[in-house]
Design a protein around this nucleic acid. Structure first.
Length: 170
DNA sequence: CCCTGATTCGC
DNA sequence: GCGAATCAGG
């Protein structure tokens, strides 16, 4: 799957919104988070909320076991403090604050829900329920779900992370 | 352990 | 240009 204009556009949008690379990758489908990150860098996007600093790494240069590359020590990389907004990642799920920007299409926030009907679900589609089950608006996420679970990467995190947090917090 | 982005480099 | 492998950090 290549980077079509639309996919790049979506990438830019989601990245700008603060979604993580893996989340974006999950929504795009067919690409890994590494692919997303790589593309982001190629597009000269990067550093928004800023996560891990960039201490100028240097590795993986010679597969030769006998060769020991000299360690270049000159980061010369100052973190340009530019972005004033977008400092924190969004952790929405049911938070009212989250709903602000997550309604670009009148759907949920995260992935581009496909609004699948129950009968349209396959074993590889995310079965995360969206909306009120009692309402007609109810639908399923429908994004790509691996074999590791019933949900896409994004919803899997929403579903399972709270559990670990509970364990830690409790 | 999970995750995050950053970087390098072979393709 | 692309992205897997790897690194570095939380």
């Amino acid at each position: 799957m290549g980077w079509t204009d639309e996919r790049v556009e979506l990438l830019r949008k989601l990245w700008a919104e603060g979604l993580s690379a893996s989340q974006i990758a999950a929504q795009l489908g067919g690409v890994s988070r590494n692919a997303v990150i790589g593309k982001v860098h190629r597009l000269k996007l990067s550093g928004r909320g800023r996560t891990t600093a960039a201490p100028a790494r240097q590795k993986k240069a010679s597969p030769t076991p006998a060769s020991r590359p000299v360690r270049a020590a000159s980061p010369a990389r100052s973190t340009s403090a530019t972005v004033g907004a977008t400092a924190l990642q969004v952790q929405f799920d049911a938070e009212p604050v989250a709903r602000q920007y997550l309604r670009p299409v009148g759907d949920v926030v995260v992935p581009i829900s496909r609004r699948l009907d129950l009968t349209q679900l396959t074993e590889r589609t995310c079965k995360w329920p969206n909306g009120d089950p009692l309402s007609e608006d109810f639908h399923f996420c429908g994004n790509e779900a691996g074999e590791s679970g019933p949900y896409c990467a994004y919803h899997a995190r929403l579903a399972f992370q709270p559990a670990s947090e509970r364990r830690r917090a409790r």
